[in-house]
Simulated scan of single mutants.
Amino acid sequence: MKFRYSESVPKRTDNPTAAILKAAADPQVISFGGGLPAPELFPVAEMKAACDRVFDHNGQQVLQYAETLGYPKLRRQIVDMMQKRGVQTDVPNVAVVTGSQQAIDLVGRMLINPGDIVLTEDPTYLAAIDVFKTYGAHLVGVEMDEAGMRPEALAQALERYPETKFIYTIPNFQNPTGRTMTADRRAQIVKLAAQAQVPLVEDDPYGAIRYAGTNLPPLKHYDQDGTVISISSFSKILAPGLRMGWLVAEQSFMEKFVQLKQNADLHTDNLTQYIVADFLDNVDLDQHIKKITDVYRHRAELMLSQIDQYFPASVRHSQPEGGMFIWVEVPGTDADELLKVCLKNNVAFVPGSAFFAGKVQPGTFRLNFSNMDDEQIRTGIQRMAKAIQTVLA
């Protein structure tokens, strides 16, 4: 059968995300590739207890169809969570989504026509790149440094592309670099977007996982006129298999969003929403997040110390204050070729080429530390060091 695919279906046959997951599934390979939380930190017993309570008290209700924007109680709990983060909002402005990835997809579907300009940090989240390209966007990368997206570079891009549909940014512990946008830049970038009348999509799945530095308010905190569409997730603070995230936006946007959400899946899984809501009622979420951050702090510090000890002195890396990733730059190498050598030595990472909207910076790659124990981190980094020495030689 010859299928006549739509223009939204990717033309390429390679799949970086699938390759990452495949490498992570091989027990012989120490994979620093996937953005996987530590499974030993999943609150299994607490989730089971929540599930039992939900079925005992709301069994029939949770198995029925539900509201498109989500379980009202859970949305109220999300409002409370956002207020603790410095964002004043209300239930009508909150939608529960099937993982933050669905929110990225629906925002792309709502705003992008083929050929539209979308500005992103460069580098940025590879699955967001894929989504935006699927809808026909022309991606323009905006330069960033250790303090996040550069306001001067954003201003220049907005001047050059006044028809920009939206700006996409990950301000906290960015994927792939692990960098965090400073408070001053957050305010400046929101102001620039508002002045240009360009929506700003804030993707914040990692913000709660901070183990160094000072908590910073989300971009939505600085929003005075509905410029910012804020997206977040329970995947990193509870478990990714729940597929539970949320979106916060102004009312006129939500009126359109609900229609596309309904077309996509009617509503996010009702049972899981009730379970998460019950969990939040009965478990100290802050204490649970502290357990996660304590483990991730240790693993990040261990990986950084191993990189500093075994990698060549010319290698540069980011210094994350939270999240799950370290960005590495090895001058004089091709990261795709380096990966081939690493795989022969049973260690994996994600080459930087997958993350750039614009020109690829050679010799860059992303490492994930959250899903590996101490011995795997030590062994894996030492294997990588040998591979780097081989390629450089």
Results as ranks from 00 to 15, higher is better:
residue 247 L to T: 12
residue 179 R to W: 09
residue 193 A to C: 06
residue 182 T to W: 03
residue 224 Q to D: 09
residue 204 D to F: 00
residue 226 G to T: 12
residue 210 R to Y: 04
residue 197 Q to A: 09
residue 191 K to E: 13
residue 181 M to P: 07
residue 246 W to R: 04
residue 316 R to I: 08
residue 272 T to D: 04
residue 203 D to M: 10
residue 243 R to V: 05
residue 237 I to V: 13
residue 188 Q to C: 08
residue 262 Q to H: 14
residue 294 D to H: 12
residue 252 S to K: 12
residue 319 Q to M: 11
residue 220 K to Q: 03
residue 211 Y to N: 00
residue 187 A to T: 04
residue 314 S to W: 06
residue 275 I to D: 04
residue 188 Q to W: 01
residue 252 S to Q: 15
residue 264 A to F: 15
residue 195 Q to G: 01
residue 262 Q to E: 13
residue 278 D to L: 01
residue 189 I to R: 01
residue 183 A to K: 12
residue 241 G to P: 03
residue 317 H to S: 12
residue 245 G to F: 03
residue 202 E to K: 05
residue 270 N to Q: 13
residue 193 A to K: 05
residue 229 I to H: 05
residue 257 F to G: 08
residue 261 K to W: 02
residue 279 F to L: 15
residue 253 F to C: 11
residue 263 N to W: 08
residue 298 H to M: 14
residue 282 N to E: 09
residue 184 D to W: 04
residue 195 Q to Y: 05
residue 268 T to F: 10
residue 307 I to W: 08
residue 299 R to M: 04
residue 235 S to W: 07
residue 306 Q to I: 08
residue 223 D to E: 07
residue 196 A to V: 09
residue 294 D to K: 11
residue 230 S to L: 11
residue 281 D to L: 06
residue 252 S to L: 12
residue 307 I to S: 08
residue 263 N to D: 14
residue 260 L to K: 10
residue 225 D to W: 03
residue 198 V to K: 01
residue 196 A to H: 07
residue 245 G to K: 07
residue 203 D to E: 04
